[in-house]
Every structure is written in structure tokens, then in C-alpha cells.
Amino acid sequence: MLNFIFRRFLQAIPTLLVLTMLTFALMYMAPGSPFLTEKGMPEEVLANINAKYHLDLPVWEQYLIYLGNLVQGDLGPSFRYLDFSVNDLVWPSLAVSATIGAWSLLIAVTLGITMGMIAALNHNKWMDYTLMTTAMAGIVLPTFVMAPLLVLLLSYKVKLLPAGGWHDGDWQYLVLPVFAMATHLIAQIARITRGSLIEVMSSNFIRTAQAKGLPYRTIILRHAFKPMMLPVVSYLGPLFVGVLTGSVIIDVFFGTGGIGQHFVNGAINRDYSMVMGVTVLVGVMYIAFNAVTDIIYAYIDPKIRY
């Protein structure tokens, strides 16, 4: 198992290299320079700036310098906020995103699995239909629709919760963002769990367990639960992506100050190094999360050889 984990993380290295290369190439190929102003700049100043950011070196050398800094955890200077490095701006906001993300993941997984199991165990009864119709609604309502609807209902019509802001993560400020982000994920997980459990419940080993006269609870918890979780676990990777992309909308809409906000602002301000920094950071987390998912999967499913 340890060997497998090690190998799995080694495999992530080429992916990471491709990721940095792609983002770097995109930045290099982007038309114009971030320092071109409408007035123009004296050539000497431009040359100085280019030298400061290593823009006068050949591409491969620039890439190697970037990579070298990256390995040491330095995402480079922000092109827009001249006094800040990308690190200064990104790390505090990462904490905010992580709080929202962790809560929504937790809620999505527990609620989603519970809903899915209830629906599957009442297959084709009214409970099943009600739950699955709700889930369908959750799937077609993307985060950027959910967020305004929630604000409209819960903070504008009924003045229950604040419409935005962060305030060091007070729970009132946390509820709407977390809920807006989790809805879509709950629905997805519920659908996957339901399908998976229905399939598991009709398999032979469950019939054997029933024939042995095991109590219902034991059959579900001891025999059906683990195989049921397989497709759910393999959905964890995309789930994480949902949290990351959801965070872009949540930060813009609720003004929570998470990492997504830097990404969008960086994009609009043409702060290439910021956009790149966030892409690389998110990419690393994403790849790491995929690896972890694979490892959990191998742990649950005895059929997987490693």
C-alpha cells in the first residue's frame, strides 16, 4: 500500500510539469506586455522593468527561473499590485476558501449520501420521486443561480441572514455561501448514491445475506455500504473541482474574499502572474486531491491491484 501511495504521487509529477508548462506558455504567448501603457514608456525604463522580471531572457530560461521559484513555494510578484507578491495576496484568501469549501464538502457528502440512500431504499415510491425531483432541481440550478436566489429570498425578502461579507467567518456570514455552493453537490451525490445502492441491493451477495436472515440494518451497513461508496468516492475528484469553481462565483457574489476573487480580478486586470499563480496553486491542489481519491479508492475496493 505504501508503495502504491508513493508511486501514485510520483505519477503526479509529469502532470504538474505539463500544467506549469501550459500556463507559462499561455502567459508567454499572450499578446502585449503587462507593462505597456497608453502613454508609452521610455525605452530605458522598459528595459529595466524587463530585466527585473527576467523578461529579457530567452523563454526556456524564464521558464526555468519560474520553475525554480515555484519549487521554493514562490509564485512570483504580482504585476498589478507592485508592492505585493502573489503569495502575500493568495495565502490569506486560501484560508477563507478552505473554510467555505470544507463546510460545503462536509454538508454535501453527509446530506447527499443520506438522501441517496433513503431514495434507493424506497425505490419507486413517492419518497424516491420527491427526493429525486428535488435533486434534479439542484442539478439544473448552477451556483451562480443559487447564490442570487438565496440572497433574494433569505436576505432581501426575509431579512434573516447577511447578503455578503466575511467578518472573520462568523456563522451568519458562512451559511449562505456554504449552502449556495453545496446545493449542486448534494444533488449530484444523492443521484450517484441512489443509482449505486439500487444496483448493489440487487446483487447476489445481498441476496445471500438476506437468505441468511441477517437483520435489515446489518445488511445495509455491513454489506451494502462499502460497495455503494465506490462510485461516490470516484466522484470526489470532480466534487473538489466543483468546490474550486464554485468558489469563483461565491467570492465574486458574496464578497467573501476567497481565492476565486483574486482569480477573477487578476483576469480582468490582466495581472498575468496572479492568474498563473492561482492556476498553478489550484492545479496542484487538484492533482493532489485526485491522487488522494485514487488512494481511498484502492483502499475501499479490494479488486484494485496496486
Binding site: L26, P31, Y272
Partner: peptide, 20 residues
């Protein structure tokens, strides 16, 4: 395919939109 699908493409696409 495996390597490409391990990249955060939502972010790559937005980056593409910004730069070009």
C-alpha cells in the same frame, strides 16, 4: 488523456479568454 484531465481546465479556459 489522463494528464490533460488532471488539469484544472475551468481555470485554463478563463485564462485563455483573458489573454486572447
Amino acid at each position: 488523456v489522463e494528464i490533460l484531465s488532471a488539469l484544472p481546465f475551468m481555470f485554463m479556459v478563463i485564462m485563455l479568454m483573458v489573454m486572447f
